Computed example of a mutant assay.
Amino acid sequence: MNTNKEMSVGVSGWDKIFPPSDKVEHKKVSFKNRYGITLVGDLYTPKNWNGQKLAALAVCGGFGAVKEQASGFYAQTMAERGFVTLAFDPSYTGESSGEPRHVASPDINTEDFSAAVDCLGLQSFVDREKIGIIGICGWGGFALNATAIDTRIKAVATMVMYDMSRVFSQGYFDSNTPEIRREMKRSLNAVRWTDAETGTPTPGYPMPDTPSDEVPQFLNDYIEFYKTPRGFHERSVSNHVWTATTLLSFMNFPLLAYANEIDVPTLMVAGENAHSRYMSEDAYKSVETDKKELLIVPNARHTDFYDNQAGAIPFDKLESFFKENLQ
C-alpha cells in the first residue's frame, strides 16, 4: 500500500533557513514508520530531468534540528545535482507526529531512516536499487545503524557524526566516570517517578540563549547557529527542550555495535577543528567495508557543516561519491 501523499499540514509557504532553488521542484509528503508514527518530509526533485528513474537520498539531522534547517539545505543542494532527495522531521519532532513531543529513541530514529527509504522507493521516478542516506551530526550515528540493518541502503555518508549513545552514556570526550554515570541514572530515574505521578514528561535543560565564557566553545557554536537568525527555526527542538528522560533510551544502547556489518560504500566527513571529530574517527575504524573513506575538512568546526559556513561542506565530494556508488 502506498502511504505517501501530499500534505497540507504546517506552514504552506517557504519557511526554511535557506532560500528556495529555481533548479528543483519541491513538495511536502508524509509517510509512516513501522511504529505507525506519521513522518513529514520535503521531497526535492531536479527540474527538467529526462524521465528516467533517478537515484535518491534520504537526509536527516542534526540532533534536535528540523527539515527546514541543515537537512533541507543538503537535500535541496543534492537535488540540484541530479538526485531525488527527502529531508524529513524525525518522530516526535517538527511537523511529524508522535506524543509526547520532543522525545528521541535510538531504535525509533534508526527506523525513521528506513521509513524514509520506504517513501523514496514508492516514488515512481526513483530507482529502488539506487537509494542512499546522509546523516548529519547525531543523525550520522543513526544513519550508520540503519545501514547496518537495512540492505536497501546502497551507500551512506555522515557529516560531523555524533554517536548519541556514546555522548549520553560517557559524556563528551568520554569524560564521565562510573560514579557520574551511576548518579545520572539515579537522578533520571527519580525524574521518572515525577513523570509517573504527574502524567507529564519533565523537560530537560534548555540551550542557553546567548554565548558565555562559562560553557565550552562548541556549545557557544550551537547557540550561534540555533539561537540567532543564522539557523533559528521555531520548530527546532534546540529552541524548545528534549524531555529529561530521553537520555535513558541512549545510556545503555550500543548504537554502533554492528557498524562492522556495513558492507556498502561509506563516506565519513568531519571538521579538522570540530569537537566531534573523534567520534567520526572511531566509527570509521569500526566500519569494515573496504569501500570507506574518512574526509577531514581543514580548519572547519562542527556547525560549519550545518549551513556551509566558510564553504566547509564538500558538496562536490558528496555528488561524486553517490553518483559513483549508486549506479
Rank of each mutant, 00 (worst) to 15 (best):
H102I: 05
K317E: 14
G82A: 10
N260V: 00
N308T: 01
E234P: 01
Y35F: 11
P216D: 15
S320E: 13
E261K: 14
Y222N: 06
G199H: 09
P206F: 07
S8Q: 15
V167C: 15
P90W: 15
T85V: 06
Y35C: 07
N2F: 07
L318I: 01
D282V: 00
R128S: 11
A196C: 05
Y44C: 06
M7N: 06
G199M: 09
F73T: 01
K47T: 01
R81G: 02
V287H: 10
Q170F: 07
L86N: 05
Y306G: 02
L256I: 07
F142R: 13
N176Y: 14
T151E: 14
R230M: 02
A300H: 03
V103M: 15
V297F: 01
G135K: 08
G51M: 05
P203S: 13
A157Q: 08
G171H: 13
A58K: 11
E197P: 00
G199A: 09
I296D: 13
E319F: 03
L122P: 02
S169Q: 09
L219R: 08
F83N: 06
S96W: 10
E25D: 08
K323F: 06
S276T: 01
E80M: 04
H233Q: 11
S97M: 10
K23S: 03
F315A: 05
P178W: 15
R301G: 03
G311E: 14
D150W: 09
S276M: 06
K323Q: 12
R186V: 05
K285P: 01
V297R: 08
Y306T: 01
F321R: 00
T147A: 03
Y74R: 11
T202A: 12
D307E: 10
N2L: 11
F232V: 02
Y258Q: 15
V24Y: 07
D15E: 08
D304R: 03
G138A: 12
G171L: 15
D22E: 14
D290N: 15
I134A: 09
K291P: 00
G311K: 11
T246E: 14
P206S: 11
G135S: 11
F232R: 09
R34K: 14
K47L: 11
R34Y: 12
F168E: 13
F113G: 04
M251E: 08
G138Q: 13
T266R: 08
N145Q: 15
Q76P: 00
R182L: 08
A257S: 14
Q76I: 02
V29D: 14
N4K: 13
P46N: 03
I131H: 12
G62T: 00
N239E: 10
